[in-house]
Amino acid sequence: MSADLTSLPVHAGRTRRQWLTSVCWLLTLLYFPVSLVVARAWPSGYRLSDNYISDLGITRCGEYTDRDGLSRSVCSPDHLAQNVMFVLTGLLMVAGALGWAWWWRGRAFRIGCVLLAVAGLGIAGIGLAPWDIRPQAHDTIAVVQWLVQLIGMVLITPETARRRRVLAAGTAGSVALSVIGGVFLFAKGHFGLGAGVSERIAFDSLTLWGGLVGFLLLSSSGGARGDTRSETGRSSRRRRG
């Protein structure tokens, strides 16, 4: 009886941390409404097919040329809000990834979560290095962040398949979609989709996946309480052994 009573605060704290982990992942979805508001503030109109995601954070209005030699008009009055959102999204992802690493088991899974946290730092770095101020750093950070996040997602897939099959399927689908978007983005002419659409397929699919993680961790059957019970059961068996 006394052992059970002693363990209650530990279980409550563990469940609270699991809830916070889920909420951090869910809050990354705030990126989408904020980006929409920033895009709507453009005086000349934000063109999804022609303008990059990073154009929303460019600090100076003007004509900019992409790597294909095509010129695009950029004027983002609310660029500060977008760059702050990049940083916030990245930090939420860091917190969510590290919390998830503590929550579930498995060496490959935890390495994957660490890589997701590194990718989160990359997203924050994108907001701290707007494209018009530090173009080389911005592009390098974005590519590294994309690759690191994909590798992290691949590494966590076996454990998610064991615990949450829907999440494993969503992870695999997001990786595939993002890779396809990356191929379109780096291909000359972007297969007719335009640089903006291709980039959103490559990158926004990963942000949507983060929201899926938060939703399923928070609300799927056998969520936080179920994982807590299973961890408690394993601890009890180790003590008896």
Rank of each mutant, 00 (worst) to 15 (best):
Arg14Asn: 02
Tyr31Ser: 09
Val23Met: 03
Arg110Ile: 13
Leu115Asn: 01
Leu26Gly: 04
Leu70His: 07
Leu177Phe: 06
Leu92Ile: 14
Ala129Arg: 12
Ile133His: 04
Lys188Asp: 05
Gly62Leu: 00
Ala176Asn: 05
Thr6Pro: 00
Gly57Val: 06
Tyr52Ala: 06
Ser73Tyr: 07
Gly112Ser: 11
Trp102Leu: 14
His138Gly: 03
Arg67Phe: 09
Gly226Thr: 12
Ala161Cys: 01
Cys113Trp: 07
Val114Trp: 11
Val94Lys: 08
Trp104His: 13
Val213Pro: 00
Gly211Asn: 08
Arg240Pro: 00
Arg134Thr: 12
Ser236Val: 13
Ala95Gln: 09
Arg163Met: 07
Gly62Gln: 01
Glu63Asp: 04
Thr232Met: 01
Ile58Val: 09
Val23Thr: 11
Ser235Arg: 08
Arg60Pro: 00
Val37Asn: 05
Gly122Trp: 05
Val175Gln: 10
Gly99Ser: 02
Ala169Ser: 10
Val148Ile: 15
Trp102Thr: 14
Asp78Phe: 15
Val114Asp: 01
Ile201Gly: 01
Ala161Lys: 02
Leu147Asn: 03
Arg72Trp: 05
Trp19Phe: 10
Asn51Phe: 03
Val179Ser: 02
Val94Thr: 14
Leu88Trp: 13
Phe109Ala: 06
Asp132Met: 06
Arg17Pro: 01
Val213Ala: 09
Leu27Met: 14
Gly210Arg: 07
Ala95Pro: 15
Arg16Ile: 05
Arg107Glu: 12
Leu193Tyr: 01
Leu26His: 03
Gly233Leu: 11
Gln149Arg: 09
His138Asn: 12
Gly99Arg: 06
Cys24Ser: 14
Leu206Gly: 02
Gln82Met: 15
Ala202Gly: 09
Leu20Trp: 14
Ala3Trp: 14
Arg16Pro: 00
Arg60Gln: 10
Arg239Cys: 00
Arg229Leu: 06
Arg72Glu: 01
Val148Met: 08
Arg14Glu: 07
Arg240Gly: 00
Asp68Ala: 05
Gly152Tyr: 03
Ser178Glu: 07
Leu5His: 13
Met85Asp: 12
Gly106Arg: 10
Leu193Thr: 07
Leu116Arg: 13
Ser236Ala: 07
Phe186Glu: 03
Ala172Glu: 07
Gly194Pro: 12
Arg107Tyr: 15
Gly211Thr: 12
Lys188Thr: 12
Arg162Phe: 07
Cys24Gly: 09
Thr207Gly: 02
Pro9Gly: 11
Thr28Asn: 04
Met1Asp: 01
Ala12Ile: 15
Glu231Asn: 04
Arg200Asn: 12
Gly214Asp: 03
Ser2Gln: 06
Gly222Arg: 10
Val166Arg: 10
Leu27Gln: 06
Leu193Ser: 04
Trp131Tyr: 15
Leu26Met: 15
Gln82Pro: 04
Leu218Arg: 11
Ser71Ala: 10
Ile201Phe: 07
Ala137Val: 14
Met1His: 06
Val197Phe: 05
Thr59Cys: 00
Val166Met: 10
Ala119Tyr: 04
Gly112Ile: 11
Asn51Tyr: 04
Glu231Pro: 00
Arg47Lys: 08
Gly226Val: 11
Val183Gly: 00
Gly152Ala: 00
Ala97Pro: 06
Asn51Thr: 12
Met93Ala: 09
Ile111Ala: 11
Tyr64Asn: 00
Leu217Pro: 01
Ala202Leu: 13
Gly96Phe: 12
Ala81Lys: 04
Leu193Met: 09
Arg16His: 02
Leu30Lys: 08
